[in-house]
Each structure stands twice: as structure tokens, then as C-alpha cells.
């Protein structure tokens, strides 16, 4: 029992160390590599952006719009009692931009893209493709990790903005269609109380989530062992660990923003 707890704690520390090292190596290839005439290929960054970003648009849109609808109905249920139904608009907009859209988008992307990355890199690892790259003197971090990292880093905030807008649209549909709020008044109320800081704290979160997803997925993928079963395990671990880290980071960041009055 105690030995298994000990093994678990050692495992957590060594993976954390591994992820930090991977992060530093990624930063090296992003910022210092280009000056040593070894730039990251832009084509592969764009290709990954297409996969991470464009192909996630639909699922992010649907998740956010339904969240907006649910949020509007649940808050209306409360606010009707106080005769303040109009404030559904601002409540939906603020809670989406500050909290729900960054987190839900990150969870969707972790499930969709993070798992795909770790399965792809894991398969490459167990079929010796990573070792083949190393013997061809091609650094796997530069060749495989950096394009995926950059794509996630730039696309997740974009998807979050899309989530903000589609969530507000969902709230709008409920507000106008079922609560009989005037459409102009709904939009006016939405943006009247929404401040710039609500949007950029949300986006700050999504940048952090993007880093977490990319690093966890690439680390798990590159450290896959034991064949097909190992690939499955790496994929599961990627999703579970990134979900936990996203929620944890969200908690930490929200308290930082809260206590610094942002």
C-alpha cells in the first residue's frame, strides 16, 4: 500500500519534470532554434492549425451555443422571481467570457485534439518512427512537438472567441424567443456590463490551457511504451490528465484574477 503510494508520488514528480523539460526544449526551438538556421517549418504549423482549429469549429460552436441556451434558461428561472429577467443577457455574456467558454472549449479540444496528438505520436514511438527521426538527425521536438504546440497556442484562443460569440447567440435565442426580451435591448444589456477585462482574463486562461494540452499530449505520446496497448493508455492518460490540469489551472487563475480585482 505505502509502496504503491510512494511509486505514484515518484511517478507524478518524474512526469512533471519531464513535462517541464519538454516545455523548455519547445521554447528553445521556438525562440533560439531559428537563429541557428534550424527554423520550424511553417507549412507543418499551418497544417496543424487546420487540424486543431478549423476542424474543431463545429463542435465548439455547438457546445457553446447549447451552454448559452441552458445558462439563459437556468438564470431566467432564478431572475424571474426577482423580476430581473433582462439581466439574463449580461449574466450569460459575462459568465461565458470569463469562465465557461474558455474552460469548455479547452475540454473539448483536449478530448478531440489532445487525444489525437498523443495517439499519433505514441504510434510513431512504438513503430520506431521517432527513433528513425533521431537517427536522421531530425530533432523530434522541433519536427513534431513545436508545430502542434504553436497550432494549439494560437488556435485555442480563437476557438474560445468563437465560443464566446456562439454562447451569447444561444442566450440571445432564449432571451428573445422565450423570455420576450426586445432583441436590441438584449444585445445592449449583454455588452453594457461586459468589460474588456472579462474577455482578456478568459483569453489568458485559454492560452494557459493550450500550453497544458499541447505539453501533456506530446509528453504522453513521446513516452509511450508497450505497443498498441500503450498507445491506448497514453491517449486515456492525456485526456484524464489534461482535464484535471485544466480545471486546476482554472481554479488557480480565477483566484488570482479575483484577488487582484481583475
Amino acid at each position: 500500500m505505502i509502496s504503491s503510494i510512494g511509486r505514484f508520488i515518484i511517478g507524478v514528480f518524474s512526469s512533471t519534470g519531464g513535462v517541464v523539460i519538454l516545455f523548455l526544449r519547445t521554447l528553445y526551438w521556438v525562440f533560439i532554434g531559428p537563429f541557428q538556421k534550424k527554423p520550424v517549418k511553417l507549412e507543418s504549423v499551418f497544417y496543424q492549425m487546420g487540424f486543431t482549429g478549423l476542424r474543431s469549429v463545429l463542435i465548439v460552436f455547438f457546445v457553446a451555443i447549447f451552454t448559452g441556451i441552458v445558462l439563459a434558461m437556468q438564470t431566467a428561472y432564478q431572475l424571474e422571481k426577482m423580476g430581473a429577467v433582462l439581466y439574463v443577457a449580461s449574466l450569460v455574456a459575462i459568465s461565458l467570457c470569463r469562465e465557461l467558454s474558455p474552460v469548455l472549449t479547452a475540454l473539448v479540444v483536449a478530448g478531440r485534439v489532445g487525444s489525437a496528438i498523443s495517439a499519433e505520436l505514441g504510434t510513431m514511438k512504438v513503430t520506431e518512427q521517432i527513433e528513425a527521426l533521431e537517427i536522421m538527425a531530425i530533432n523530434p521536438v522541433r519536427f513534431l512537438v513545436v508545430p502542434r504546440f504553436l497550432a494549439l497556442f494560437f488556435m485555442l484562443p480563437c476557438l474560445t472567441i468563437l465560443g464566446n460569440l456562439s454562447g451569447i447567440l444561444g442566450g440571445f435565442l432564449v432571451g428573445v424567443g422565450s423570455l420576450n426580451i426586445n432583441p436590441y435591448l438584449y444585445l445592449q444589456t449583454s455588452f453594457k456590463y461586459l468589460e474588456l477585462k472579462d474577455i482578456y482574463t478568459g483569453l489568458t486562461k485559454s492560452f494557459v490551457f493550450a500550453i497544458l494540452i499541447a505539453l501533456v499530449a506530446c509528453f504522453e505520446g513521446l513516452n509511450t511504451t508497450k505497443g498498441a496497448e500503450g498507445v491506448g493508455r497514453a491517449t486515456t492518460r492525456t485526456v484524464v490528465i489534461s482535464f484535471i490540469l485544466i480545471i486546476l489551472a482554472d481554479c488557480v487563475l480565477t483566484s488570482i484574477f479575483y484577488f487582484s480585482n481583475m
Binding site: 504510434t123 513503430t127 520506431e128 518512427q129 528513425a132 537517427i135 536522421m136 538527425a137 530533432n139
Partner: peptide, 21 residues
């Protein structure tokens, strides 16, 4: 330095290890 040396290496893997993509 190892990478520099490896540019003069070639290797054929047991299962070829071609990049699938």
C-alpha cells in the same frame, strides 16, 4: 555534434519505420 555525425549515417529499421503521414 552527434547529429552532425549522424548525417553520414543511414539506417534501415526492422519494420522500415517510414513516416505514415
Amino acid at each position: 555534434q552527434l547529429d552532425e555525425l549522424r548525417k553520414s549515417f543511414g539506417m534501415l529499421f526492422q519494420y522500415s519505420a517510414l513516416l505514415d503521414s
